[in-house]
Design a protein around this nucleic acid. Sequence first.
DNA 1: ACTATTTATATCGCACACGATACAATCGCA
DNA 2: TGCGATTGTATCGTGTGCGATATAAATAGT
Lengths: 148, 148
Amino acid sequence: MATPMDQDIPELNEFLCFEIYASNLSFGRVYKPVLDPLGLTYPQFLVLYLLWRKDARSVGEIAGALGLETSTLTPLIKRLEQAGFVTRKRDPSDERRVKVSLAPRGEVARTHLDEIRDCVGRATGLTLEEAQELQTSLRKLRTHLADS
Amino acid sequence: MATPMDQDIPELNEFLCFEIYASNLSFGRVYKPVLDPLGLTYPQFLVLYLLWRKDARSVGEIAGALGLETSTLTPLIKRLEQAGFVTRKRDPSDERRVKVSLAPRGEVARTHLDEIRDCVGRATGLTLEEAQELQTSLRKLRTHLADS
DNA sequence: ACTATTTATATCGCACACGATACAATCGCA
DNA sequence: TGCGATTGTATCGTGTGCGATATAAATAGT
């Protein structure tokens, strides 16, 4: 506990936004050693995950699902392509779209999904019930933040 | 609800880590229009906040409080200095340390703190009770993740 | 006192993440 | 049919974040 000069200003960790900020960084540090051997970053893993669920999506579709801008995803997906995880090609039915599809290496990475989930799940130290309660609150929070 | 090709793989938003990742991005989007007029980014705001509570901290002390690496903070703090929010000078009692202190513009920014808190607090759409419950869970989660 | 280690910060390269902007393909409407 | 508006991506510049490495100051051990 620090010795604050101003008792009227609370600790930083009494801010919800900071707890989320710091939790996100902590999660990243847990994922890193798990994903590094596969040659993936966490956002790249999220993109692949979407493709494992449904292949051949457009950049905009992926951006919508992740809540990111396409300007963030374009270079990220190009790195995934460069590394052999996905392929990119224009949609013949609408040449404005770029369809992103799984390449062989992307399919292989999928076989590590369970192991990744187990590893990260254990690191949380939460019961399934606690985790789901947290998710429910966060989803509600996220909806409000997005609508505000 | 999408039409998954693989029912054995859950939706992305059933992952706690993704909810936190997405919530963090959403918070950032709420803060941006509030902090932009002040000429601050969210991480820069966090650094100033620490200094409002206790002035004249070393880079390492700030890094520890935020859970960041000093390699992240050095350029960030230099930008704060460049913009006139803080000053940096070597600690005479230990020349390895750099003491970061509030400059006039940093003091002025403090007068907007209440307004920032109100604005962001309202955007969460949570009661004080819900917010505190969430914080408690997140703090517990963060502890586990850091120890794992 | 002198070296070896540790500590505090800085530098560099890479990967997000965003807003602003550009551009080509498509669509809508006269 | 044709032309203006919209849509889908890409590009650019700025600001985090990290690990690896460098460097200078302080400390420890002989």
